[in-house]
Amino acid sequence: MAATVSEQRWRVARTALADQTDRFLDLVRATPPAAKATAHWSVVDTLAHVGSLAWYYVCLVDPEHRPLPVPGLHRQLPDITVDTVADFNDVLLRHLTERDPQALADRLRADVGQLLLASEGRRPDETVPWLGGARVPLAGLCAHLVNELLIHGHDVAHVTGRPWSLPGRDAALFMELFLAGVVRHGYGRLIDGGAPPSERPVVVEFRSAYAAPVRLMLHRGRMTFAAPDARPDARIDHDPGTLNLMMFGRVSRARAVLTGKVRISGRRPWLLPGFLRKFRTPS
């Protein structure tokens, strides 16, 4: 995999963010705001959550932007891990009390527009500080927000049974630009915990039709890129949307495999569960 993000992939990420914002807002407008989108959030809470991330991301790329009204936020960020992200989200929602759907939709659209404007002309691999002390490239920041729109769009669509697709081209950005980006630039404490350190290196290759393969190695508790000539212990051929839904707990691993949208192969596939206990996302 290339050491930097190409301008072409940067354009794809920016276009995907604009397109998926429009799709998500169209869906939310057509859904009862008080209906339950998840076990804990209504549709309007979900909109507020996605909006809080867009607001935060604008602050990361534009220091002049109005900060989030959360006291002590910057002191909390370095200690967050994937296992405590839910607590962080709850803190944001307690302080962001606006629940008028139109006001939230207008703010999300404005903040996404400002994020795209503030990052225009900048290098896609320029990094900003993120949760848990991770460093995220600008392209990865856009890719993460695209994934939030896709995953939470899936939650909202479930309320009324409306169809909601996770287009492969856009869903693939999460692995290619965000996850690979934080491994490349430093993930800090973000994935602390999970699997205990092991002396045996485990190499896993992720492959889809929409991006170059990503080959990662877990060794002694650290996640890095594997050497180009390293033989994978396991390969995951996947539909990116299904993989993302699986990683965020919306689709079970059994279902993802049985549908054929996540296919596991390789010489030592039994090592994959330990790898995934470390290489994980909030679910």
Rank of each mutant, 00 (worst) to 15 (best):
L92I: 09
R94V: 10
R94W: 12
R94Y: 11
H95K: 02
H95N: 03
L96I: 05
E98T: 11
D100T: 08
P101Y: 14
A103L: 07
A105Q: 11
D106G: 08
R107P: 08
L108H: 09
L108Y: 06
R109C: 06
R109G: 10
D111P: 10
D111E: 11
L116E: 01
L117E: 11
S119H: 03
E120A: 13
G121R: 02
G121D: 03
V128G: 04
G133S: 11
G133R: 05
A134N: 06
R135T: 13
V136A: 07
V136R: 00
P137Y: 05
P137V: 13
L138N: 01
A139G: 05
A139D: 03
C142A: 14
C142E: 02
H144T: 10
H144P: 06
H144F: 09
L145H: 09
L145W: 06
V146N: 04
E148Q: 06
L149R: 00
L149N: 04
I151K: 08
H154M: 13
V156P: 15
V156D: 14
H158C: 09
H158N: 13
H158Y: 03
V159G: 13
V159M: 07
G161S: 11
R162G: 11
S165W: 13
S165L: 15
S165F: 15
P167L: 12
G168C: 10
R169N: 04
R169S: 11
D170K: 02
A172F: 09
L173F: 01
F174K: 03
E176W: 05
A180R: 05
A180N: 01
V183R: 00
R184F: 07
H185M: 12
G186D: 04
G186R: 04
G188I: 13
G188F: 01
G188Y: 00
R189H: 09
R189V: 13
L190D: 03
L190V: 15
I191S: 00
I191W: 02
D192L: 06
G193P: 15
G193C: 12
G193S: 14
G194E: 04
G194N: 02
G194H: 00
S198L: 12
E199A: 15
E199S: 09
V202L: 02
V204R: 00
E205Q: 10
F206T: 03
F206K: 01
S208A: 14
A209Q: 13
P213F: 08
P213G: 06
R215P: 15
L216W: 08
L216P: 15
